[in-house]
Nucleic acid binder design. Structure first.
Lengths: 242, 242
DNA sequence: AAGTGGTCTAGACCACTAT
DNA sequence: TAGTGGTCTAGACCACTTC
């Protein structure tokens, strides 16, 4: 029936997700795992892996002994904090048509905090790209990315408007795999407020984060500032055997 | 070797985690899955499930073809946003010795927002418990929980200082299984500032959230306010095939 | 070429829920 | 008691990294 890559599990997941969003399951009840497995000609393990992913992102709810059900509340959640990858995508998910404006793209000596986080010498050069994401000329997100200059094999001319992970893949040959993000409430200073189109002192959310590549090396220090009146983040918090 | 409950997977996970934190693996390299499976007398699936959980919480890093490694950065993260369950635990993880003070415990008519979120009639009665969590008499977290009065089989006398999930299990016979949380930056008003021991207008983080039970029913509406100078949240953000 | 993690299968049994 | 999801096994093959 199906080809590899994306994996069988991901194809099954997409298949079930599609049926969910198109409301194909009566009473919000999803068929038993055994029935799904037989119906799609795959093993129950594959079905379970797909359902586990759907449950994790809040689309379904499973109860041992009872069954698997569509989770209406979870389906409504846009911009799940732990899954944010590109701000263009976040804005699109909110129904906006996003655009991006590069405010600056400079080679600067790293300040101490950034240098330590990236594991480079204090004062070593970093490429600093400042961007703002807008919808209909209204700023929603302001970002500042610092990338060690040593990572570049050649100067990156003019493509600094690319999503960061594409930019890093293109010019540094590194794949961004995860961020460790600190969530900080801030009152915007004059400079930030101007770039975000709000009054000085307006309250907003900031991410201070470090991005790592496939070899678990820190490759980017990023700070992002958000318009709380235009974009809010949600997250599903579960009990977990830490 | 081992008994069920906690599951084999969780026992294996705890076993490996212990070796990680005690630095038993040379060069931060974790043995191949096949070796772990043979060594512990379990199947490779069980090992993989345990490693998947450890990777998800940031303790390890896996690379196809290369191996499995200890993730020093991830290990240092306390208070991972998506895993917070009791604030006592959060404060303990930060090395504080927490205490809790109940500010109020009343039966009130629900306001419209809370009533709609909980799916009860506007003005229906809710039990409202306001608590503050402290370390050395210094407030760190302020919470306000609203529980539909109809969930109580008997009045809950005096045990409102219990962690919320224990309280709900004890008096309402419901197990809190997950929260959907909205993350909001705020400037504290006079009343909030006084309870948190900060100046009016201080910036902080708030959670506005809805807690669900094992049957996916909303059972509690909660708001929490934090002292940003004493407690910060972190999260690992990964690419995920949504 | 050897060794690693990633995907998938087929099947067994357990724990829990409904009726 | 029947049916559901949860755990675990043993084994096959694939994709990728390392040497």
């Amino acid at each position: 029936m199906i080809s590899r890559n994306p994996s069988l599990t991901d194809q099954v997941k997409a298949h079930i997700k599609e049926q969910i969003v198109n409301d194909k399951f009566e009473d919000g009840r999803i068929p038993p795992e055994a029935a799904l497995a037989e119906g799609l000609g795959v093993s129950r393990t594959t079905i379970r892996d797909a359902l586990a992913k759907l449950e994790h992102e809040g689309a379904i709810h499973r109860r041992q002994g009872a069954g698997t059900f569509v989770n209406k509340v979870g389906l409504q959640i846009k911009s799940r904090l732990e899954e944010i990858w590109s701000y263009e995508q976040v804005l699109q998910d909110h129904g906006y048509t996003p655009s991006v404006k590069v405010l600056s793209d400079e080679l600067l000596p790293a300040d101490d905090e950034v240098a330590e986080a990236l594991g480079i010498a204090a004062g070593a050069e970093v490429v600093v790209i400042e961007k703002v994401f807008l919808e209909d000329d209204e700023p929603v997100v302001l970002t500042r990315n610092c990338i060690p200059a040593g990572l570049f094999e050649e100067p990156a001319h003019g493509r600094d408007d690319l999503p960061l992970y594409e930019f890093l893949e293109e010019y540094c040959d590194r794949r961004l795999t995860y961020y460790v993000s600190e969530i900080v409430p801030v009152a915007y200073d004059a400079a930030q407020a101007k770039k975000l189109g709000v009054k000085k002192g307006t309250v907003g959310l900031a991410f201070i984060e470090l991005g790592f590549d496939q070899n678990n090396e820190a490759i980017v220090h990023a700070t992002s500032f958000f318009r709380d009146d235009l974009l809010r983040f949600r997250i599903i918090r579960r009990k977990s055997g830490t």
